[in-house]
């Protein structure tokens, strides 16, 4: 199998992931735009590591890009995390309280 064909297979799989499920029909454009936006967002966020060290930031950037492309489409997971389920929100709340308690114990 040549490299062109594998690339084609990858792309087809990626598109199939959109078309199955609720992403089909009139919000496919929204899904694809959101996907690209999110990738760019992650990459830009990872650039912030340059405030500590520039070479490490470049390595981190490459790693994050590779991971994001490997796990694509990310938008499905983003949507699941942003569900209006009460337990989702409670999960974030528990994490938040865990951070507060960690600060308390660490500082005290």
């Amino acid at each position: 199998m040549t490299s062109t064909e594998t690339f084609y297979e990858k792309l087809k799989k990626w598109l199939d992931n959109f078309i199955t499920g609720s992403g089909y029909t009139n919000i496919t454009t929204g899904y694809i735009t959101g996907e690209l936006q999110f990738l760019v967002f992650i990459i830009i966020l990872s650039v912030f590591f340059r405030l500590f060290s520039v070479p490490l930031a470049i390595i981190l950037l490459i790693f994050i890009t590779a991971f994001a492309l490997y796990f694509a489409p990310v938008i499905k997971d983003v949507e699941k995390e942003n569900m209006n389920d009460l337990n989702r929100v409670l999960y974030w709340m528990v994490i938040y309280f865990a951070i507060i308690i960690a600060i308390t114990l660490w500082g005290g």
């Binding site: 609720s22 569900m83 209006n84 389920d85 009460l86 337990n87 989702r88």
Partner: peptide, 10 residues
């Protein structure tokens, strides 16, 4: 049950 009533929905 909160897990039934307040379940997330599309």
């Amino acid at each position: 049950k909160a897990s039934v009533i307040l379940k997330g929905e599309r």
